[in-house]
Every structure is written in structure tokens, then in C-alpha cells.
């Protein structure tokens, strides 16, 4: 390592030691620290355990935590790209990988690409691509864009973000916070949306239940499809929206009083609330559709 970089790294590590309010020994022993550009692309891999990313305003990456038995930890850098890997030493032994628990502080503008098998992923204030086979994903804070996928784990997104794409299989998917465009789907897991900033949303499940509970933005278009799960749309009583609800073989429960139906064909309900500034299209095959109103002053119950 060239002398100046070594000096810089030393300064970074010393500075980190001084900023114990942000990170410190409570998160495990210091595994590595590097000076990086603020827009560094970071690929991370940890099979089992957990991996947490915290976006911060420093131009450096620091990793703390505990590395599992026979797990090799690697933090390497190549220009503006960085790899953070916790890899089991011996593959093919049939034994489950040992759990490593890692916490990485990364620049807020960095772009993550994180992959795990069963390790849970947590990210706060940093965006990118997150994937786990069975781990749970929890992403919070502000980010430019977020792509998150898990096959059997749960996805909990509470983010301020322009664009979110999230896929879950049998696990639950929750979206809160402030997102303008969202493309969300599950196979059999329940899907809940409680964000009032959406302009475009495509929400789909095959057998999971879908619940949308928020104040729709003017000009928003929300498209919801579900095969056999139920769809519940909960709007404030002063909502301005047009709704086109169709179920092939399920029931449609209209909890709106004083709404005017617009030429309803069988098994569908078209109605306008207020000035009709946002649009909801809901379609199911056998799942029931429920439209509910909530008093404006009741607020929105937090998703748990």
C-alpha cells in the first residue's frame, strides 16, 4: 500500500475511533476501514448471520462486526468499486455456513449491491440492490433508488426515495415512507402499502392479501392485481380519486357512502370520489375487493 494511502487510512481509522457516537466497539471489533469516493459502488456478500449498512457523510467505509468460524473476510478496493465479502472457507462440506454479523458505514451516495443466503439485511440511508434467499430485509432512510428482493424473507421498506422496486415470495412486503414510483409484488406473501406520496404504483400478488392505506396524491395512478388474495383500499374521507374495481369471481364491498357509481358492468364498480384527481385500478380473479373510508382526522395507523 503506498505510504500516503496508508497514512490516509490511519487518519480515517483514528477519526472513526473519535466519532464513537456514530459507530464503535458496540458494533463489534473493527474489521477494516478504507478511504473511498462518495459514490463508490460496493458489492457485499454474506451468506449467514446479518449485514447492516449505515449511510454516513464521511468519504470512507468502515466495517465492524464478528466473522463466523472458518469464514474469510475480505474488503478489497479497485478504483471506484469495492467488495465486502464474508465467505465460508470450505464449500461443499454440507455444513451450514457460520453466521457473520457485519456492520458497514458507507457514504450516503454510494451504491450498494448486497446478496445473502439467510443473512438478514438492514440498510439505513443508502440505496442500491438488495437480495436474499431467505433473509429479512429492512431498508430505511433516504436513498436515490432501491431494488429489493427476497424469496422467503420479509421486506420492510420505510424510505424516502424516488423509485422502489421490491419483490417478495412467501414473505411479507411493507412499503412506508415517501416514494414516488413503486413496483411491488409478492407471490403468496401479504403486501401492505402506506405511503401518501406515490405518483405511479404497480402492486401485484398471486395469493397474498394486498392492503393500500394512504392519501392518494393528485394525478397518481395505482394499479393493483391479485389472483386469489383480497385487496383492501382504505382512503381518507376527503380523497379525490376515481376507482375502477373489478373481480371476476370475488365480492366487491363498497364502504363508501355518497359515492356515485359510473355505469357499472357486472362484477365491477367504477366510482368517483371528490374531483377524481387520482386513479385506482384494482382487479382480482377470486379475491374479494374491499373499499373503505377513514375519517381524515384519524391519521394512518402505522404498519407493524
Amino acid at each position: 500500500m503506498p505510504g500516503d494511502r496508508r497514512l490516509l487510512l490511519g487518519v480515517v481509522v483514528l477519526a472513526l475511533g473519535a466519532s464513537g457516537a456514530v459507530q464503535g466497539p458496540a458494533d463489534g471489533r473493527l474489521l477494516a476501514g478504507r478511504a473511498v469516493r462518495p459514490t463508490v459502488a460496493i458489492k457485499a456478500w454474506n451468506a449467514a448471520g446479518s449485514i447492516r449498512f449505515v449511510g454516513w457523510s464521511k468519504d470512507s467505509v468502515v466495517v465492524r462486526g464478528e466473522v463466523g468460524r472458518n469464514v474469510r473476510f475480505l474488503l478489497s478496493q479497485d478504483g471506484d468499486a469495492m467488495k465486502l465479502i464474508a465467505e465460508q472457507e470450505r464449500d461443499g462440506s454440507g455444513a451450514s455456513p457460520s453466521a457473520s454479523h457485519l456492520v458497514a458505514w458507507v457514504p450516503r451516495q454510494s451504491a450498494l449491491s448486497v446478496k445473502t443466503v439467510s443473512a438478514d439485511i438492514t440498510a439505513d440511508g443508502v440505496g442500491g440492490w438488495f437480495y436474499s434467499v431467505s433473509g429479512n430485509l429492512r431498508i430505511t432512510g433516504s436513498a436515490r433508488s432501491i431494488e429489493a428482493e427476497t424469496m422467503t424473507g420479509n421486506l420492510d421498506l420505510d424510505v424516502a426515495c424516488l423509485w422502489v422496486r421490491a419483490r417478495a415470495g412467501s414473505g411479507r412486503l411493507d412499503l412506508r415512507g415517501a416514494t414516488e414510483a413503486a413496483d411491488l409484488s409478492t407471490i403468496s406473501g401479504d403486501l401492505r402499502v402506506a405511503t401518501s406520496s406515490l405518483l405511479r404504483a404497480q402492486i401485484a400478488s398471486v395469493t397474498g392479501d394486498i392492503r393500500f392505506a394512504a392519501t392518494p396524491t393528485a394525478a397518481a395512478i395505482v394499479d393493483v392485481s391479485d389472483h386469489s388474495g383480497s385487496v383492501e383500499v382504505v382512503l381518507p374521507d376527503n380523497a379525490s380519486a376515481e376507482l375502477a374495481l373489478t373481480s371476476i369471481a370475488g365480492s366487491i364491498e363498497n364502504g363508501v357512502t355518497g359515492s356515485s357509481a359510473m355505469a357499472p358492468p357486472s362484477r365491477s364498480l367504477n366510482l368517483r370520489l371528490g374531483r377524481g384527481e387520482s386513479r385506482f385500478i384494482v382487479r382480482t380473479f377470486t379475491g374479494p375487493i374491499r373499499l373503505k373510508m377513514q375519517p381524515t382526522n384519524a391519521g394512518w395507523p402505522e404498519l407493524r
Binding site: A41, A111, G128, W129, R144, S145, E147, L162, W163, E180, A181
Partner: peptide, 9 residues
């Protein structure tokens, strides 16, 4: 690509 992802909206 993170840059492309940012441009997507």
C-alpha cells in the same frame, strides 16, 4: 448500474 437506476424514473 446505479447510474442507470437513478435515471430510470
Amino acid at each position: 448500474d446505479p447510474v442507470l437506476a437513478g435515471l430510470w424514473p
